[in-house]
Amino acid sequence: MKCRQCRERMSLYLAEALVGNWIEQFEQHIADCPDCAQKLSEKQQLLEMLHSLSALTPSEDLSTRIKAAARAQLRQPEPQMQPAYYLKVAAACAVVVLAVGVGVVWRAPSARQALAPPTAPAEMTVVVERQPAVARTSASPAANTALAKPEKSVETSTAVASLPHRLRAESAMPQSPASSPALASSETSGVEESGTTESVGPGAVKLARGESAQMMRTAEVRSARPPDYLVQAAARVDSGSELSLARTDTTQAAQVELAGRTLVGTVVANAVVSQYVREAIIESDKTMMALTTSAPASLIEVTARDGEAEVE
C-alpha cells in the first residue's frame, strides 16, 4: 500500500468501515511507515478529544419539569382523532383508488396501445443463457420464434427490435410465461431457466426482462458494453446523472454501477409503478438507491436516494 492510499483510508479504518484485506494492508503500512503512523495518531487524538468531552448536563429541575408537563398531558382526555385526520385518510384512499384505476386502464393492452407514445425503434441484442449451456436469440417480435438451444454452448444472432412492440408483447403475457406464444420461445424460456437477458442499443438502454413478478425473480439484466459506453449512454439520457447501469438478478441481489464503479446490494423493494415504469429500491452496504426504468423513454435512470449515492 502506498502512503496516498493509506491516508485516503485512515478515516475508513477509524470508522471500522475498511473491509477485506485492506485492513491487513493498512495496518502493515502503518507499522512500516512512521509518517502515516503519525497522521493516524493525530486523527485518533482528535477523536479521543471528542470522546473525552464530558456530557452536557441539563438543569437540575429539567426532569421535574418534564414529569409535571407529562402529568398535565396525561390528565387531558385521550387524544381523539380529529375530523381533519379522517379527511386525510379519505383523501389518501381516494388517491390510492384513483392510482389503481389508472393502473388497471394503463395495463389493458388495448388502452396501452392507444396511449403508447410513438418511439423510434431501438436496436437491441438479447442474449438468453441457460445453465449450463448458453444460447443467444433475437428479441425482435419478428424473430421471436428463434428458440434458445440449450444443448449448444453458445449461439448468437442479433436483430433489431422495436421497443414498444416488445413491451406490448410482454404486457400481453400473463403470469404463466408459456401462455404467450409471441415470447415463450425466447425470452420466456430463457428467463424461466434463470438465464441472462442482455440489452443494449444506441440511444436506448432498456432492461430486457419479463413483465411478471415471476419473471422478475428469474431475470438478470446486464450490459454487454463496457462501463464507459454506459456512462455516456446515461449521460445522454440524463446529463445530471452520475449513475450508469443497474441490474437485478434472481437472488434479489442488485448491482449498480456508478460512474464505472460497482456497488452490490440487495433489492429491498420492488414495485411496478405503471406499465412503463418500474422502480426498485436497492440497498447496498454503502448506500441506498432507487432504480427506475422507464420504457417509453427507453432509459435506465438510477437516482441517488437521500443524497447518499457515493462510492468510496
Binding site: L12, A15, E16, A17, E283, S284, D285, K286, T287, M288, D306, E308, E310, E312
Partner: peptide, 8 residues
C-alpha cells in the same frame, strides 16, 4: 439507515 450508510 444501513450500517454502511451510517459509517460513510
Amino acid at each position: 439507515c444501513p450500517l454502511g450508510t451510517l459509517k460513510s
